[in-house]
């Protein structure tokens, strides 16, 4: 098991949103979380990624209990996260956005060890010099050809789809083992949705495990290995993408009637 969330209870301040949610992700798998608005899908992702602290329950990554770890440590360990909105740095250029994606493995040319500290002990991966990070950015961007001519543009000046690409590319800089993606298709035109999905599939096929929240449930389930349906902060259904797609109840409740 690569990633496991067990009986998570979490929320904002006093307000509990998740009332005990569990999910797992295996090596190289793609898992989709669906559910109505406000079901707590984003909350679950944020809790896994250490942006919210669960009041109960555990999160495990490989053999490590990562409950309550700082997001930075999780990035160093090989997790990545693409938020639902505001997922790029608008006043940074695309290239700088990508560079930020690799900041945890950067070797400072000054003996200041700006971003290292205890990181190396937790990760076996190699640290990179600035030139290597550049190189890596160029390599990553090859996956997203439409970003090629815009490397020097401010990310904030790109279209929604392009920004989504930047966010994906940024999170791929370190080749994470697990990528948590929150609604990559939000606000995109249907055609762009397909492009983004195909990128995600591509990433998945390169060996990265993916947990994806999606409103576009049918499309997402079609490409996913497994899926979870959440409702009001609880697990409702779970199964393979295929099964969920053809399950009558799920269809009636969440896929818009016809199944």
């Amino acid at each position: 098991m690569l990633l496991q969330a067990e009986n998570l209870r979490s929320g904002y301040g006093e307000m509990e949103i998740l009332h005990g949610v569990s999910m797992t992700l295996d090596q190289g798998e793609m898992v989709v979380l669906i559910g109505p608005n406000g079901a707590g899908k984003s909350t679950l992702i944020k809790t896994i990624f250490g942006l919210l602290r669960p009041t109960e329950g555990r999160v495990r990554f490989r053999d490590t209990d990562i409950t309550g770890y700082h997001p930075r440590d999780l990035v160093i360990m090989g997790l990545g996260y693409v938020p639902q909105t505001n997922n790029t740095f608008p006043t940074l250029s695309v290239l700088e956005n990508l560079e930020m994606g690799a900041i945890t493995r950067r070797i400072s040319p000054l003996p200041l060890h700006w971003n290292r500290g205890s990181d190396q002990r937790r990760t076996q991966s190699r640290m990179m010099k600035d030139a290597e990070i550049r190189e890596r950015a160029m390599e990553t961007v090859e996956m997203f050809p439409n970003l090629q001519p815009k490397l020097r543009e401010h990310a904030g000046s790109l279209s929604g789809g392009e920004q989504q690409m930047v966010a994906l590319a940024k999170s791929m800089m370190l080749d994470p083992e697990v990528l948590l993606i929150d609604e990559p298709s939000a606000g995109l035109a249907p055609k762009l949705v397909d492009t983004v999905f195909s990128k995600i599939v591509e990433i998945n096929e390169s060996g990265t495990g993916i947990v994806m929240v999606e409103q576009n449930a049918k499309k997402a389930l079609a490409i996913a290995d497994r899926g979870y349906v959440l409702e009001t902060g609880r697990n409702r259904f779970a199964g393979t993408g295929e099964w969920l797609l053809h399950n009558a109840d799920v269809g009636r409740l969440y896929l818009g009637g016809q199944a």
Binding site: F49, L51, H70, P71, R72, V75, I76, Y81, P83, N86, N87, T88, F89, M100, G101, I103, T104, N115, K170
Partner: peptide, 8 residues
């Protein structure tokens, strides 16, 4: 938020 999540 994003900076934190990026590992900065």
């Amino acid at each position: 938020e994003l900076a934190k999540a990026t590992g900065i």
